[in-house]
Design a protein around this nucleic acid. Structure first.
Lengths: 120, 120
DNA sequence: TACAACATTAGAGCATAGTCTATGGTTGAC
DNA sequence: GTCAACCATAGACTATGCTCTAATGTTGTA
């Protein structure tokens, strides 16, 4: 599919998709046999990746971190051990985030208690 | 205390503290009786606020959102009902974050499974 | 009184993550 | 063949959240 369809499928703007491509998160392929244009073609895996990017961004991962995770899964860039190390590191940071969010909930619930009882 | 001590107490640089002050998150007081300088003095509540700011930032809240929460707790700017609304909204967004992080954990565990079983 | 260690303000600079504009070429339905 | 709807690239612009520099003034100890 071309970028417009990819944009519709993922809900991301073509600009944003190109930004992710420049950042090395995804990669389209140009058709070598067609010489009249230089359009990029994207596959289903790219749709998957963009969905993953969207979700990973919303939990606070940076472009760099997301790139690393994508490489750990879709690429042959790293050894099996390296891939597992990258993914385990991210799992640890997610557990840390879970802990921090639960703490923050407690803190806000405490604020709420103070408001409810006119202590502030 | 002066900004240097506040910096040491909180682990935040004086620059960052001044940035938060300009952003309206905290407020120091100048001593009106001393006319030879314009040094700002900070109290224990400011230490508390900066600790809260640090924690709130690490769970992904923006400066604007943090300002709103601080106002909902330390200020008389909003009515009781408004304060509760602000805090409840943040609690909901934290629950959303919890959900998203758990989903992301599942996704990464799935990646790990694929790596372990040489499926990628 | 010298001087290190502090304080202030204004504003420049930087990284991240987009977002938009300009320019120019291509495709496909009519 | 025309024209709307697409495509590509380069680069400018924006928002957020710092981070640093410069210039200048104050404090307190030796």
């Amino acid at each position: 599919m071309l970028i417009n369809e990819l944009s519709k499928r993922t809900g991301l703007s073509a600009h944003t998709i190109r930004f992710y491509e420049k950042s090395g998160l995804i990669e389209g392929k140009q058709n070598e046999t067609v010489k009249s244009n230089n359009y990029y073609h994207y596959d289903e895996v790219t749709v998957e990746k963009l969905e993953f990017i969207h979700d990973a961004k919303s939990v606070g991962f940076t472009i760099k971190e997301i790139g690393l995770m994508i490489d750990a899964w879709y690429n042959q860039k790293y050894s099996k051990a390296q891939k597992l190390e990258i993914l385990d590191e991210k799992l640890i940071s997610l557990d840390q985030k879970l802990k921090e969010i639960k703490e923050m909930k407690k803190q806000i619930l405490h604020f709420k208690g103070d408001v409810l009882n006119d202590r502030c």
